[in-house]
């Protein structure tokens, strides 16, 4: 939406800058913080191209060029690592993205305030369970011998399987336990966005004879669509960044084929001695792909709708 229809001219632009001088002042503070603390250390990216040792200065250590990248991409398990990393991320996205939204929409429609608040509070809590305990819980519930979940599934299917060790179940277990844990916390932003929806729209809809379901589809959902789209785009910016801790605790030799991801591999490489340059190179590799994905998805979003990051 532009103020004046027609071409923007430099004159108009200059006028606008003057008009919003206060905004520039405001923006200066966080901008300064970002420039100092995020761009200040940015030169450290070169570590990925050197053979860095802590007792050398960053500039003083020897150049290695693309050696670490080549070593990483050429390693025998690279295809598997890529496949698992991307696979887990995409699966997590597809499964995990809609759930908090649906949950928030349902919560929003709940007239019983006490029930609503209880559900919100209870689902918010699992976010604080540490990864170690989370994995202990998963292992405990899926223990073929004694786990509740495992026994329940066994009684239904008649088969006793060690779910944790089965390669084909790893992603499912990993992703859905993550959904379980973060659903309530992730829904908060949508609940907040729904709170920003004009209530008179709801009442108008009701008067028009819309059922609750129609209300959700035609009022709520469109109202929070920009938030949804933005968050969806942003989630593509972390496809390569599957964290190592939870997977490391859950993986074993049998499920390694589907559970080994880039971060767990880098972690194992770094166990014996600090491999700064190697992990920096892998990190940079991941970042470039993440950034590229984000830009691409953003472009698509821009073509398709009106919401995009920039």
């Amino acid at each position: 939406m532009t103020l004046a229809s027609g071409k923007r001219t430099n004159q108009m632009r200059g006028k606008r800058i003057k008009k919003h001088w206060q905004l520039y002042l405001l923006f200066l503070v966080p901008l300064a913080s970002v420039l100092i603390f995020s761009y200040g250390p940015m030169y450290g990216i070169v570590i990925a191209f050197k053979n860095y040792v802590v007792s050398d200065s960053i500039w003083g250590s020897k150049w290695a060029g693309l050696k670490h990248f080549r070593e990483f991409i050429g390693s025998y398990n690279f295809p598997r690592l890529m496949k698992n990393t991307v696979g887990i991320s995409i699966y997590g996205l597809l499964a995990g993205f809609p759930v908090p939204i649906i949950f928030a929409l349902l919560i929003n429609e709940c007239p019983n305030v006490r029930f609503k608040k209880t559900v919100q509070m209870v689902t918010y809590a699992p976010h604080f369970i540490s990864t170690v305990v989370m994995v202990s819980l998963i292992v405990m519930f899926l223990n073929p011998r004694s786990g509740i979940l495992a026994k329940a599934i066994t009684s239904m299917t008649g088969q006793r399987i060690d779910y944790i060790s089965a390669p084909k179940f790893f992603k499912t277990i990993y992703v859905w336990s993550g959904v379980w844990q973060s659903m309530g916390f992730s829904a908060v932003i949508y609940i907040a966005a729904l709170a920003g929806v004009d209530a008179s729209l709801h009442e108008a809809a009701v008067v028009d004879g819309a059922s609750k379901l129609q209300k959700i589809c035609h009022v709520d959902l469109p109202s929070i669509m920009p938030t949804i789209v933005i968050l969806f785009i942003l989630s593509f910016g972390s496809v390569m960044s599957v964290g190592y801790e939870k997977i490391y605790l859950m993986q074993n030799q049998l499920n390694m084929a589907t559970s080994d991801v880039i971060s767990t591999f880098v972690y194992r490489m770094g166990l014996l001695q600090a491999q700064y340059s190697f992990s920096a190179a892998v990190g940079l590799f991941n970042s470039v792909i993440n950034a590229a994905l984000l830009v691409i998805v953003n472009q698509i979003a821009r073509r398709v709708g009106e919401t995009s990051l920039w």
């Binding site: 390693s75 025998y76 398990n77 074993n252 030799q253 049998l254 390694m256 490489m269 001695q273 491999q275």
Partner: peptide, 25 residues
Amino acid sequence: TEQEGADVNTYQTHLKDYVTESIVL
């Protein structure tokens, strides 16, 4: 030496991964 150390680290990580996985398989 530094070069040896880096190589050993890489080889050892890969070999250990591969051997343990293969044994169990």
